Amino acid sequence: MTRAHLPGILAMAAIVVASNILVQFLFGQWLTWGAFTYPLAFLVTDLMNRVYGAGPARTVVFIGFLVGVFCSLIGTQIHGEFGPLVTFRIALGSGLAFLTAQMLDVSIFAALRRRRWWQAPLASTLIGSSVDTVLFFSVAFSAQFAWLEPANDIGWANEALPLLGLGPIVPLWVSLALADWMVKLSLALLALIPFRLIVQRLDSTSIRL
């Protein structure tokens, strides 16, 4: 790790902290504000991978993971109306999803980095985001994982309701996961714009130097 990696480290840490705060605030019926900041972590990972390689990208991911663990520990000590802001299942799901999805993102990007400029960031982010969503919401809220924290009542998350208010009857957490996943996919496409601009700027700067 060098001083050149510091912007990526600080950006990842800021995104993780902001997302842990903003996830406490609802945006509509199915989302929280954190859903719009967290996907930016994939942009940071991909930029680090493109500019510095897979090794530094993994370092940034691991530091982001440690920051997330720290945020979760703080959240377990803050009690709201219904108990701790962060339960064991949420902390476990969050950490597992982040580390698994981000490391997968790094590996996929590295495998595709010599293809057309948009293929590596798009494929790695889409797959990583999908894995992230499945892992987090299933571990944190699915009734099948209730044994992880028997004292935590997640009955509200398994209330049977129409999917996103319109579709077939499913547990509430499935609608929450689907809405979150759609935001991630949308931002993955939008993130190609800053990815391209930042990489071009860095490449032109390195050429001048």
Rank of each mutant, 00 (worst) to 15 (best):
residue 136 F to S: 09
residue 79 H to R: 04
residue 25 F to N: 10
residue 82 F to R: 06
residue 33 W to G: 08
residue 107 S to H: 05
residue 115 R to D: 11
residue 127 I to M: 04
residue 134 V to Y: 04
residue 87 T to Y: 00
residue 45 T to D: 03
residue 91 A to L: 09
residue 66 L to V: 15
residue 126 L to T: 06
residue 94 S to I: 15
residue 127 I to P: 03
residue 78 I to A: 07
residue 26 L to H: 15
residue 107 S to F: 10
residue 124 S to D: 04
residue 45 T to P: 07
residue 111 A to W: 01
residue 77 Q to H: 10
residue 137 F to G: 02
residue 101 A to F: 10
residue 132 D to G: 06
residue 90 I to R: 02
residue 64 G to D: 08
residue 119 Q to M: 08
residue 40 L to Q: 09
residue 113 R to K: 15
residue 22 L to I: 15
residue 35 A to E: 05
residue 128 G to I: 02
residue 124 S to P: 06
residue 27 F to A: 14
residue 30 W to T: 11
residue 20 N to V: 12
residue 135 L to Y: 13
residue 76 T to K: 11
residue 50 R to I: 00
residue 126 L to F: 02
residue 107 S to Q: 03
residue 25 F to L: 13
residue 31 L to G: 11
residue 118 W to N: 10
residue 93 G to R: 13
residue 125 T to W: 00
residue 79 H to D: 04
residue 99 L to Y: 00
residue 140 A to F: 03
residue 29 Q to T: 15
residue 103 M to F: 14
residue 73 L to F: 11
residue 86 V to F: 04
residue 112 L to K: 02
residue 127 I to V: 11
residue 86 V to T: 14
residue 50 R to V: 00
residue 45 T to S: 05
residue 128 G to M: 00
residue 39 P to E: 06
residue 23 V to L: 09
residue 108 I to R: 01
residue 92 L to N: 07
residue 34 G to M: 09
residue 21 I to Y: 07
residue 83 G to N: 09
residue 40 L to N: 07
residue 64 G to K: 04
residue 101 A to G: 09
residue 135 L to G: 07
residue 110 A to L: 01
residue 82 F to I: 05
residue 32 T to K: 06
residue 60 V to H: 01
residue 63 I to F: 05
residue 79 H to V: 10
residue 119 Q to C: 05
residue 19 S to L: 04
residue 24 Q to G: 12
residue 42 F to T: 07
residue 51 V to L: 13
residue 107 S to E: 08
residue 18 A to N: 12
residue 18 A to E: 08
residue 63 I to T: 13
residue 23 V to G: 07
